[in-house]
């Protein structure tokens, strides 16, 4: 069967089986679940080893002139996570894990393209307006209910942006890892110090994404979370007027 909101999408994505009040609806393909859960610890360790490296020249701050609102990062943060005086170790881990991060990311992109999954993930003309509506809804500022679709506009934007950010981390990382071999890239990014800052800002972006993502996953509940492990959601047919 097809749900009205799944019209025009490949049939493999929304098959659902069962009858009565509950039914099983396929959500996340197995490959995507693996990519997701491999990426989670790898990216975590990339950020960890990145912090071991960043500590050796921790110059970024939010402030103006001699006034500093926040310094990246406070000494208490380094000592709490034991991040100090470990530059060599950090670099070795970073240049080991980068392969897993890059390969897993490339495979994910290739898979989403070949399987057609990209259709649910890539934003379209309606996504941006919808994303605003979703945010207003989530902040309880609007009564508009996000569409019952695999990924709403806000999700499409978020999940596509995070992949572009992953690509950005590879590109800015390459620019500071091999600034002579990729001198054109380093210069395109504004030079070595600029590329290093961009690499850092992307990392802050992951942290921000992570916080919102976790909040949304908690808010969405068990059924949604289980889909990222087991692949399916259990839905109640009453939700659908066409049944």
């Amino acid at each position: 069967m097809k749900f009205p909101w799944s019209a025009g999408v490949p049939p493999a994505a929304f098959e659902s089986v069962g009858s009565g009040m509950k039914k099983i609806e396929e959500k996340h393909p197995l490959a995507i679940r693996w990519f997701h859960w491999i990426n989670f610890p790898v990216l975590t360790l990339m950020i960890w080893s990145g912090l071991l490296i960043y500590w050796a020249n921790d110059i970024y701050r939010i402030g103006f002139g001699s006034w500093t609102l926040f310094h990246f990062l406070p000494d208490s943060f380094y000592s709490a996570l034991n991040l100090s005086h470990r530059l060599a170790e950090g670099m070795a881990w970073h240049f080991f894990l980068m392969w897993f991060f890059a390969i897993n990311g490339f495979l994910y992109v290739i898979y989403t393209v070949l399987s057609g999954e990209w259709r649910y993930l890539v934003p379209n003309r309606r996504s941006f307006l919808e994303a605003i509506q979703v945010v207003l809804h989530d902040l309880h500022l609007s009564k508009f209910h996000p569409p019952r679709r695999k990924f709403n506009g806000a999700q499409q934007i978020a999940y596509t942006t995070i992949i572009l950010m992953g690509g950005g981390s590879l590109v800015t990382g390459l620019a500071i890892y091999k600034p002579v071999q990729f001198a054109w890239l380093t210069s395109l990014l504004g030079g070595y110090p600029a590329a290093r800052l961009e690499h850092f800002l992307l990392t802050l972006g992951y942290v921000a994404f992570f916080l919102v993502h976790i909040a949304q996953v908690i808010k969405a509940g068990w059924n949604n979370f289980r889909a990222m492990i087991a692949g399916f959601e259990l839905i109640t047919l009453e939700d659908f007027p066409d049944e």
Partner: peptide, 26 residues
């Protein structure tokens, strides 16, 4: 199991299948 003719399936059965799949995946 859930690919078969569906009209006879009860909600209980769907839930059981969900549990089986969940258990295996977890």
């Amino acid at each position: 199991k859930i690919d078969g003719p569906l009209r006879g399936k009860t909600e209980k059965e769907v839930l059981r299948q969900a549990i089986i799949r969940s258990r295996r995946s977890f």
